[in-house]
Amino acid sequence: MEILVCIKRVPDTSENEIEVNRDGTDIERDDLVYSVNEWDNYAVEEAIQIRDKVGGSVTVVSVGDEEAEEVLRRQMAMGADKGVLLSDDAFEGSDGKGLATILKAEVEKGNYDLILTGAQADDGAGQVGGMLAAMLDWPCASLVNFIEVVDDKKIKVGREIAGGNQEMYEVDLPCVLSIQTGINEPRYVGIRGIRKVASIKIPVHGTGDLGIAPEAVGEPGAKTKRLDYFVPELGEGAEILEGSTDEIIDKLIEFLKAKGGIK
């Protein structure tokens, strides 16, 4: 099975407090810790497990600047066979459709049976996988939390729905699946593994290599554009308890007693 996994380098929200910069044009990027998008990490693990079971190869691909190479390499250390970076000044400012257009061009250079994306990335859109599938005219399933390869023509997948329930489908290959967290337990990647892949060359493809008209992607091709970042003024928010830990606990216990929080 030839598998392509789309991955994105994002600020790690469990490691960072995300702040808006002074003029609201961006988030404060200095000192941010970046990592591979959480959902994509599960997708790569799943691809590796499928390959190890039925054979084939796993390629990881990312649209981004040269810094995206770091996450490609990390996922190669995890076990992906190849990495490809899609990078071009013309890609900057792409909306979801722009990203899907770029990824589609790369897909068409290969011979993939299965494409995995994450269910969503840092912008919370959850759009790229479904768009890519529609452009390719391939079947698609989102929020996938179970995959079983039936044969080389079809797979069985589970989609997560409300209440912890799951919808099961049979899907013809080739197809695009967006992967939900919890589908597996992604393996740990140590420094040693990363060193092993440090010298592997990662090809970079731009508009020319991909045969993409620059105006179809990036800012010019985007129908949905971000104007600014801001921190919303949302009502009053919580009453923040202040003082020494003892004082805070005193106040908290009063609240708990009053609200039935201690039985």
């Binding site: 909306d95 979801g96 459709k97 899907a100 269910a119 919370g124 859109a125 959850g126 759009q127 790229v128 996988g129 479904g130 768009m131 599938a133 529609a134 452009m135 698609c140 399933a141 989102s142 929020l143 989609r159 997560e160 729905i161 409300a162 129908k223 949905t224």
Partner: peptide
């Protein structure tokens, strides 16, 4: 979970702008 399954592809097929969430 249903909208996320339906909508991105629908925007492509309708050649319409997509504005998620």
């Amino acid at each position: 979970h249903f909208g996320m399954d339906l909508a991105p592809g629908l925007s492509i097929k309708l050649d319409a702008a997509y504005l998620p969430d």
